[in-house]
Structures are given as structure tokens and as C-alpha cells.
């Protein structure tokens, strides 16, 4: 069994209004050294797979098909044997 931690963010070229609103709030708290805030999604999956390659392939496919919208989002993930 593997645990996949999938991180989904809006593509760099796309304005992230939630991130922007959060950055404004951080600045109003005085955290002026924070330059950028981008908000995404974090999804954990428990995956039954024979080996890491198989788990890797499966999570990649699921992310491309459903978890992320490839028109506007990017994703990365980490795998951990559990």
C-alpha cells in the first residue's frame, strides 16, 4: 500500500484571486516580506499497488483524468510506502 500526496495548483500564468486576496491580508498584518501566495488543493490517496512504478503510473493517470484540470492546473505528487 502506498500513500500518495497530490498537490494541485493553478498554472503559473493564471491569476489566482484567492491567493491574491490572502497576500493582501498577509501584507495588512505586516508580513511585507511575503512576496507571493498561491492557493491550491492537497489530496491524499491510499493506493494498493504491487510496486512503486505501478502506484506512480496510477496516481499520474488519476490526477490527469480527474484530480486536476490540465487546462488550468498543474499537479505534483509524492509517494510513500505505508
Amino acid at each position: 500500500m502506498y500513500k500518495a500526496k497530490v498537490y494541485i495548483t493553478l498554472r503559473k500564468s493564471i491569476l489566482d484571486p484567492k491567493g491574491k486576496a490572502t497576500l493582501h491580508a498577509l501584507h495588512s498584518l505586516g508580513y511585507n516580506s511575503i512576496q507571493e501566495a498561491r492557493i491550491g488543493k492537497y489530496i491524499e490517496l491510499n493506493v494498493e499497488a504491487a510496486n512503486e512504478d505501478e502506484a506512480n503510473q496510477l496516481v499520474k493517470e488519476a490526477s490527469e483524468k480527474l484530480l486536476a484540470n490540465m487546462v488550468m492546473e498543474d499537479f505534483t505528487f509524492e509517494l510513500e510506502k505505508i
Binding site: 493553478l10 484571486p17 484567492k18 486576496a21 484540470n69 487546462v71 488550468m72
Partner: peptide, 11 residues
């Protein structure tokens, strides 16, 4: 149809 829908700019 092509494209994707983002959150409204004004949130």
C-alpha cells in the same frame, strides 16, 4: 467545448 472555468475575479 475548449477552455476552463476559473473563480470569478472578484471571488
Amino acid at each position: 467545448v475548449p477552455g476552463a472555468m476559473l473563480h470569478n475575479e472578484q471571488l
